[in-house]
Amino acid sequence: MTKKRYRDKEVKFFVTENELDMIDKKAAVAELDRSKYLRKMAIEGLIIKRDFAEVEQLVYEINRIGNNINQVAKRANELDHVSKDDIRYLRKQLDTVYGQIEKFYDEG
């Protein structure tokens, strides 16, 4: 008579040799056998998904600032002068982007 298993459902998936080595190394660090490690990760593991829409917006804003800097540089070369208002305007845009970057990292 065979003893009924507590865990009687089999889950099967395929990995590469490199992935299996990585799994085994992580299991060893956790001091678990492969089965216990995979079960624990599948049930309690954490997957972090980031929304990069904000990053795309930051890239857009940085590109805009770059264009504005180019315009100010062109004006400076033409007139041999840059106004304080131009510098304040660019500084304000940079401060806005820095604020968005800080907000992005604080939420992460």
Score class of each variant (00 low, 15 high):
residue 80 D to E: 07
residue 24 D to I: 09
residue 77 N to R: 07
residue 106 D to M: 02
residue 32 L to I: 03
residue 93 Q to E: 14
residue 14 F to N: 07
residue 30 A to R: 13
residue 104 F to T: 05
residue 26 K to C: 09
residue 31 E to Q: 15
residue 61 E to P: 00
residue 75 R to E: 09
residue 78 E to P: 04
residue 58 L to Q: 15
residue 67 N to Q: 10
residue 97 V to Y: 11
residue 39 R to D: 01
residue 75 R to T: 07
residue 89 Y to L: 11
residue 37 Y to K: 00
residue 42 A to G: 13
residue 5 R to Q: 15
residue 56 E to R: 15
residue 40 K to P: 01
residue 89 Y to F: 14
residue 95 D to C: 10
residue 4 K to E: 14
residue 50 R to V: 00
residue 62 I to Q: 12
residue 108 G to P: 00
residue 44 E to Y: 07
residue 37 Y to N: 01
residue 104 F to D: 03
residue 20 L to P: 04
residue 33 D to Q: 04
residue 49 K to S: 05
residue 17 E to S: 13
residue 60 Y to F: 06
residue 94 L to Y: 14
residue 105 Y to R: 01
residue 31 E to C: 12
residue 67 N to A: 01
residue 13 F to C: 06
residue 24 D to E: 13
residue 62 I to W: 09
residue 23 I to S: 00
residue 33 D to S: 06
residue 34 R to N: 04
residue 60 Y to E: 11
residue 18 N to S: 08
residue 39 R to N: 05
residue 89 Y to T: 13
residue 58 L to C: 15
residue 83 S to G: 08
residue 1 M to I: 08
residue 100 Q to W: 14
residue 45 G to W: 07
residue 30 A to V: 10
residue 52 F to D: 07
residue 47 I to D: 04
residue 10 E to D: 08
residue 75 R to D: 14
residue 63 N to S: 12
residue 101 I to E: 04
